[in-house]
Design a protein around this nucleic acid. Structure first.
Lengths: 217, 217
DNA sequence: TATTTGTGGATACACCGTACGGTAGCGAAC
DNA sequence: GTTCGCTACCGTACGGTGTATCCACAAATA
């Protein structure tokens, strides 16, 4: 049972899911596979190439959604699939936007969203398509990074109010009590209970409407 | 002339500007300051706390733009200042969205943008403000990461067509020649010459319009 | 003067990515 | 049938990282 890029990527993903990207090392992957560390270099030239490999495996899952009934449904489906993937593999969000995603599956999802967007009214020529795609991807990347970051801090501080006050509280409440950040203070105190999925969907639609030039409801 | 968080941060920023975040290590910073590596731990508990420090120094520069004549001008100015900062300190974009930015200056720019956005029509209550802020920040984070990544690959491959074809070409052109990614192919071939700043501004306005509910022109 | 206290430094540990040299097997050429 | 060369595997070793711990020395206190 020799070894293969697929097996290496799968093991790496398992480890990254469990211990994050910082807890991932070539040596641990090798140990997980019962092999010396240098074996991996027969299949991968770099650590970063390994990361690219992992990323493209995730994109493969995202690409499965394929085309939907209309361009709008397609874009929404791909965006939501990306979010699902990021929630399942938090390290994925760490890599989002950090390097060009050029793997075959990444290109495939790029193709479906680009093709879908090009069907939209308000996207008339190729420059507009490029811009629209940029804006959409920028939003997705930023939104997912933000959501994952929040989820991580929520998990590390504990989700309940008391633990939050105990961990970030001392510093943050002191900061907010200076009165220099009244709006932020109101946001932190009054508005922490938004549903993440709803927020993502809502903002996604907002951005999409902005891009494709549709009147807001 | 003892040592201080400010001095450490300044040295770290110099090094990160020159050699990127990967080329940054506590030992190098210490050497730069003519000190043993362990001295830094008297001022900073962690490497990550050092990164937070650096980030907040950058936010200090961003915060300098302050309020403008209207809420819209303020939001635009802050966003553009953030972009300028990211262009000057590319490592900043690597950190964007990756951890909560809670330093005093980061909170200050959060406050100004939040306060500005809350003045916008279409942002009626606090939940809408939270969502709007999320969408705006998501876009900024994603757009800057993307732009910096592109700039980096452009720099490493060389900017001219020939060098590009030589480096990414072998793989990418082969991929595009499969015919499976026609839209992406068109984008790569026909549409690479958009001005980055214009694109950012254009998309920023688009997103902002989407958020605040303004009719598209 | 004796003793405590704190401050800068060196050393050490566990771990990382990866360069390098060696070895064993196997097909091809004489 | 023997030898040669090539490929696929393997372990070791190097230079680097973040950080914990201990240590020496100077200053300040009793």
């Amino acid at each position: 049972m020799p070894l293969s890029r697929e097996k290496i990527a799968a093991a790496a993903i398992r480890l990254a899911d469990a211990h994050g990207l910082d807890g991932l090392s070539l040596r641990k992957i090798a140990k997980e596979l019962g092999v010396g560390p240098m074996r991996l270099y027969d299949y991968v030239t770099n650590r970063s190439e390994l990361l690219d490999l992992m990323v493209d495996v995730v994109y493969a899952r995202i690409a499965e959604v394929g085309q939907q009934s209309g361009w709008r449904a397609t874009v929404l489906a791909v965006a939501r699939a990306t979010r699902d993937a990021a929630l399942d593999h938090e390290w994925f969000s760490d890599l989002l936007g950090g390097r060009p995603h050029l793997g075959p599956h990444a290109l495939a999802v790029g193709e479906t969203t680009a093709a879908a967007l090009s069907q939209s009214p308000g996207v008339r020529d190729i420059d507009e398509l490029q811009r629209a795609l940029g804006a959409l991807n920028a939003f997705i990347v930023g939104a997912l990074r933000r959501e994952i970051t929040e989820r991580r801090t929520a998990r590390s501080t504990g989700t309940d109010e008391a633990a939050f006050q105990a961990s970030l509280g001392p510093y943050l409440t002191r900061m907010l009590n200076t009165g220099r950040y009244p709006t932020v203070a109101r946001l932190v105190i009054d508005g922490a209970h938004l549903n993440a999925e709803e927020t993502f969907n809502h903002n996604l639609i907002t951005v999409l409407d902005g891009i494709t030039g549709r009147p807001r409801t």
